[in-house]
Amino acid sequence: MAEETRLSTETRSTEGDTRCQVMLLLLKDGPITASDLGTQLGLSAAGVRRHLDILVEDGLTEIVNRRPQPKKGQPAGRGRPAKHFRLTDRGRSQFGHTYDELASDALDTLREVGGSEAVKKFAISRMERILTDIQPILREDESVVDTARRLAAALDDNGYAATISEAGHGVQICQHHCPVAHVAEHHPELCEAEQEVFSALLGTHVQPLASIADGHGICTTNIPLTPIKRNSDERSRA
Rank of each mutant, 00 (worst) to 15 (best):
D146R: 12
R230C: 06
D100H: 07
V56D: 02
L138A: 13
L190Q: 08
T98R: 12
G217C: 02
L202M: 05
K71H: 10
D233A: 14
T39S: 10
E112A: 12
G115M: 09
E185D: 01
G91E: 06
E112H: 09
L131Q: 02
D108S: 10
D233R: 13
N158A: 06
L209I: 13
P75C: 06
M127P: 00
D17M: 11
L138V: 13
R49P: 00
Q175C: 14
D233L: 14
R86Q: 15
H176G: 02
D108K: 06
D17E: 12
D146S: 12
A154I: 03
T11D: 08
R78E: 12
L202D: 01
M1D: 11
R235Q: 13
C178N: 09
R129I: 09
D58A: 14
S165Y: 07
L190A: 05
S165G: 11
I137D: 00
T11N: 10
P31H: 06
V64M: 06
T61L: 06
G115A: 10
A118R: 11
K229P: 01
F122Y: 15
R49I: 01
H187Y: 02
D53E: 14
L155G: 05
I223N: 00
S199G: 03
D157A: 14
D53P: 00
D156C: 07
T39M: 07
C219F: 04
G168N: 03
P208S: 07
E4K: 14
H216K: 13
L202Y: 04
R126Y: 15
C178R: 03
L60H: 05
V119R: 00
E4N: 12
T204D: 04
